[in-house]
């Protein structure tokens, strides 16, 4: 059912569909924890103001409320937020992290409780050293609490749309004469490869001349192994032009739509 790739968890459903979850590393998780810690301190400081008012009536009751308040907030914060926000605390929300069941199933309340209670040993001897080390060594980047609760922490990076205007130069694209080959290209090129090609085009001016030539030579050679266009379509075009044509072919449906909507 499950197979591991580097820092991603691939889930295959019985319907034969695959989807991948990107695992969060210990550093990102530590930063999220630091935000949560600051939040906990802020909450405790606020409720302490109310307890101070209670202290006018009874100092003993105020001290008791203080002790219990600190305990409940420090332990309950993670449990309540992760349960209420479906696997996210404030820190995790800000850093786009989410606690999920390790098999892609629904996150259970008991899982949230266990992973939060086991912070007691993950945080030993200080600053989550045990949890951090286990997280580094574990294939799924789980700390002990995650391991016991069967949970993983995923990272959902923001997907940025490529700036297609950079690709619209109005130059003739010889690949457009072969729509069936363009369709085959769109089928064979993976999203990651498409992103590499787009990024290469967008950042070409920041590259050294030699590196720029080598990069586009490699990319062009790779794309030629996926789909072979006839010689008349590729004659006389540089490797860089070839990659631009590929990118345009991949994103063309969108581009043509934008052109048509702009023209209205």
């Amino acid at each position: 059912m499950l197979s591991n790739r580097i820092n991603t968890l691939l889930i295959k459903t019985p319907e034969g569909v695959e989807f991948s979850l990107r695992l969060a590393g210990p550093i990102t998780r530590f930063l999220a924890w630091a935000i949560d810690l600051a939040t906990i301190i802020a909450i405790i400081s606020i409720i302490n103001v109310f307890f101070a008012i209670l202290g006018i009536l009874s100092r003993d009751l105020a001290a008791a409320a203080n002790i219990i308040g600190f305990f409940v907030v420090s332990i309950g914060y993670g449990i309540l937020t992760e349960w209420y926000w479906q696997g996210q605390t404030l820190g995790k929300k800000l850093l786009r992290l989410r606690v999920m069941d390790s098999q892609g199933l629904r996150l259970q309340f008991s899982q949230v409780v266990i992973r939060n209670l086991l912070r007691f040993i993950d945080s030993l001897p200080a600053l989550y050293l045990v949890g951090g080390l286990v997280c580094l060594l574990n294939q799924r980047a789980q700390r002990l609490g995650d391991f016991a609760a069967n949970t993983i922490v995923t990272w959902n990076p923001r997907v940025s749309e490529p700036d297609l205007n950079q690709l619209l130069e109005g130059k003739y694209n010889s690949f457009h004469d072969y729509p069936h080959l363009e369709a085959r290209l769109r089928q064979h090129v993976t999203p990651l490869e498409a992103q590499i090609a787009v990024q290469s085009i967008m950042r070409r001016d920041t590259l050294d001349p030699e590196a720029r030539i080598a990069l586009f030579r490699d990319l062009s050679a790779y794309f030629q192994t996926l789909v072979t266009f006839p010689q008349e379509a590729t004659d006389g075009i540089s490797d860089e032009r070839y990659v631009r044509n590929v990118v345009e072919a991949i994103f063309r449906p969108k581009v043509s739509l934008e052109i048509s909507s702009n023209s209205h």
Binding site: E18, V159, E161, R186, Q187, V189, T190, P191, E193, A194, Q195, I250, F251, P253, K254
Partner: peptide
């Protein structure tokens, strides 16, 4: 859509 590179979102 997994075979379609242009729609990551």
């Amino acid at each position: 859509i997994s075979t379609f590179s242009a729609e990551p979102n």
